[in-house]
Amino acid sequence: MVKRRVMSGPFARPRAHSRRLLGIGVVGLVALAGCGAPEASQAAAPGEAPAPISSCGRDVTLEAAPTRILVHREMSTLVAAAGGADRIVARAGEAGVPLGPYADALADVPQLNETDMTAPDREVVLGEQADLVVAGRVQADYLDALEQVGVPAVVPPWFCSQVAPGNDDAASVGFDALYATIEEYGRAFGTEDVATGTVDELRERVAAVEQEMSGAPPRTVVNAWLGRETVTSVYGALSINNTVLTALGLTNMFEDMEARNPTVSFEAILGKDPDLIVVSYLPSHGYTEEDAVRAFSETPGADQLAAVRNGRVVAMNSGYLAGGPLAVDGLEMLAQRLAALD
């Protein structure tokens, strides 16, 4: 485990060689360890610094509980679930991802870039006076560049495969990793009671769905990703999607692929011929739920699939299957849609 202690304050002077926008790259990446769920630690006593936050093989040490958090992608709901909604100063790169039950709490938080999903560069982070960045789907050089200017940044375990390629861990994408991360962030924020309450509720909801689906017959499924124009990939073993499908009693036909979102040909999907198809899509790509089902079903060759011929294709906004607390909402929504097919 690599322990990180950032320079004091978000306005520490940048090193001369690092004055560039994030995404261009920073020399000197650290070696990263595994990316499993964070270990439990004690909440800080009043006046004490919080325990380090585990972030993809790094221990990120905070000087104090953060009060100005900048969130990227789906991380706004994760921070809110841990009790930190009132600490968020800006939301970046959401591009219309759903906020679910946290919509009201986050409604007044400014969005920095509403039309794309890129992470905010260093100058933007410093301009927001952020004392913590919670990011999703970034690479190690992004975290390094923020560290160099004194801004701690963390990534939840289900996105560690992009920070530390080759350190994929199926345990990092399950519900247990979600619960542990919410509790860990709650300890760091000083909102442990809120985080614990959230986790208790999420556990109950997952257990209720699992109980409801326990008597369902065995069924196979493919969860396909619909890009802007065509189906481009599927969801494999290292995705929260696979966790959700398993909780529903379904067998993911691409579970043998040790990746989150591997690219496959449409012919590979035809070869699986699953009982059900779940199509993940983004509304920002111009799709509605009905559009996504139609786009998949009208793909050349799709009529060879029994699921298409039998009308057993459902669509899900991918924001509900992207990790974070909304994965439980996605679990419930998908259970309802599958029940409507029976």
Rank of each mutant, 00 (worst) to 15 (best):
S161G: 10
V314M: 02
A44K: 06
D169H: 08
A259M: 08
A207N: 11
E74Q: 14
E192F: 03
T220M: 00
P52V: 03
G9D: 00
S172T: 05
D59Y: 10
M213F: 04
P218E: 02
L146P: 07
E267C: 11
P325C: 06
I277R: 02
D121N: 14
V27D: 05
R87E: 03
R312M: 00
L78W: 10
A105Y: 04
P110I: 00
A95K: 08
S161T: 06
V124P: 02
T230K: 09
M316R: 14
P38N: 09
L178A: 00
D108W: 00
L321Y: 07
E39M: 11
E74C: 09
P14Y: 05
L341T: 01
G136C: 13
M253A: 15
D275K: 03
P157G: 12
P38L: 09
L331V: 05
L143M: 11
V30Q: 02
A195L: 06
F189K: 10
E114Q: 12
Q211V: 13
T77P: 14
R137C: 12
D275L: 04
L250C: 08
Q304D: 07
S265C: 07
Q336C: 00
A195N: 12
V221W: 05
R68N: 09
V138Y: 07
T77K: 12
V2R: 13
E184G: 06
D116T: 09
V6H: 14
G34P: 15
L29S: 11
V149S: 05
L70V: 06
G227W: 03
T243W: 02
V124R: 11
G25H: 01
G166A: 12
I53M: 14
R73H: 10
V173R: 02
E63W: 14
R19Y: 06
Q211F: 07
N317E: 15
L282S: 13
L331M: 06
C56A: 08
A105I: 02
R87P: 05
V133A: 04
A224G: 04
M75Q: 15
A44I: 09
V278P: 01
G227Q: 09
S172D: 07
L334V: 05
T67Y: 02
T230F: 14
S233D: 15
G34C: 07
A208E: 07
A340I: 04
L99G: 03
L321C: 06
R219E: 06
A224L: 11
A119P: 01
P52N: 04
L282D: 14
N241L: 01
R58Y: 06
N317Y: 05
E192M: 02
F296W: 03
L21V: 09
E39Y: 06
D131P: 04
A216T: 07
T118N: 13
T232S: 13
L341F: 00
Q148R: 13
Y179L: 06
D86Y: 03
G84T: 07
R4H: 05
E184L: 11
D108Q: 10
P38Y: 14
V6G: 08
A44H: 07
R73L: 08
L321K: 03
R73M: 10
G324R: 15
E267W: 14
L178E: 01
C160V: 08
P156C: 11
Y281N: 04
A207Y: 02
T288Q: 09
R5M: 06
I53G: 04
M257N: 09
A105M: 05
I53Y: 11
V163K: 11
V6L: 10
